[in-house]
Design a protein around this nucleic acid. Sequence first.
DNA 1: TTTAATTATTGTATTTTTTACAATATATTC
DNA 2: GAATATATTGTAAAAAATACAATAATTAAA
Lengths: 230, 230
Amino acid sequence: MDEKFESYFKAAVSVDNVVFGFDHTGLKVLLIYRGADPYRNCWALPGDLISLDTNLIDSAEKVLQDLTGLEEIYMEQIHTFGKVDRHPYGRVFTVAYFALIKIDDYHLHPSSWAEEAAWFPISEIPDLPFDHNEILSYAKDQLKSKIRRQPIGFELLPKHFTLTELQTLYESILETEFDVRNFRKKILSMDFITDTGLKQTSVTHRPAKLYKYNAKRYSNLINTGFAFDL
Amino acid sequence: MDEKFESYFKAAVSVDNVVFGFDHTGLKVLLIYRGADPYRNCWALPGDLISLDTNLIDSAEKVLQDLTGLEEIYMEQIHTFGKVDRHPYGRVFTVAYFALIKIDDYHLHPSSWAEEAAWFPISEIPDLPFDHNEILSYAKDQLKSKIRRQPIGFELLPKHFTLTELQTLYESILETEFDVRNFRKKILSMDFITDTGLKQTSVTHRPAKLYKYNAKRYSNLINTGFAFDL
DNA sequence: TTTAATTATTGTATTTTTTACAATATATTC
DNA sequence: GAATATATTGTAAAAAATACAATAATTAAA
């Protein structure tokens, strides 16, 4: 390599994950309490610098896996942020991902770089270090536009869910309301959720039917020009 | 800074642009003939390593500006590629952008790092160095899905264009055909192209009306929940 | 000047999708 | 069994998408 290239090889790259979860109180984001400098003792997005011997996507997955213990998580790269002064230690580009997880299924494992991890309601996010508020805002927009066109909402719900839960999920993320009858008609006509035959238990009123998502049916459909649109 | 961070600051980041153009023969991509190592004397995507003192977006714009002499180009970040061994000189992440330009308006300026620049039909792209074929394929998919939902096709056409040109553009990119009557009805009902009152000249048949895109009308509409969908 | 050739422009009927709207059903608790 | 709470379902009207072909305007040739 020509030595004129040397000056370029002085940057670092990190990944930052915007992890969304959902429960009956609404949409949540997972933040960690930083245990190391810079910005020690601040709430921030979970992320890490990338080792030179690790592929980008593997780094992003590892951060999430360390944090949640999960293997199969829905993840998607959303944007790369690269302002000159976004990191106090030098030139650090960061590649942002969003991830969707089933909030009930997992106990969080704070990892080496995080003293604590917690879910924050999407409307109560504190000031975050770096450009993390900007990243989060970007991720929210992406989630909103993505969920309208692909059946990814199911990644946020338990395996079995009620139609009311599904509707509440869509209403929270899209910040709108749907007519109960029209929503059900549309979702059911798309034909990739299935009645499990089961019903809710331990509710103090008429129990709702439990449905499950049929990912296979969707992957069959996309090749037919089918478009999910809500 | 703690010295344990030093090992991370040895990466480089580049930008690579997928520049689309359109003429009556179809969709084109702009490639440059590399005049410098690595991969000297190969056709490749126009791109460059990022100086540590330049913002990410500024780097991407500069590459395009050097190449085309243009100031206002439609650009959008699409994805970041970061496999460990994608660059022979070391760890180089690359941030890919796609850009849309009006092919007729500009004469290309080969720049310091490019001996030559040329338009290649989208279906006749040669083998490219690095992971540039993968990047290009990604960009094509993005363009396809983006153009269906946002009126960005106009960035590829001259200021004044005919409805037939517009339809051909959409048909090339989406690889489909539309009924002439239905296409016109839909486009015109969306109400952001305007009849200029002008007509084609120097054609050997009935001249078509010339239209122009009204960007302001679109930006007014998006706040009303209006959705462009073709 | 008429005719041929070429592309531009336009309308309507049918089907499908979206929208608006409220009554009935099923469970628990008191 | 009455009260309470949520789940479930249908229909009519409006809007949008689709399928389909005849007429108009220009140039070139005869």
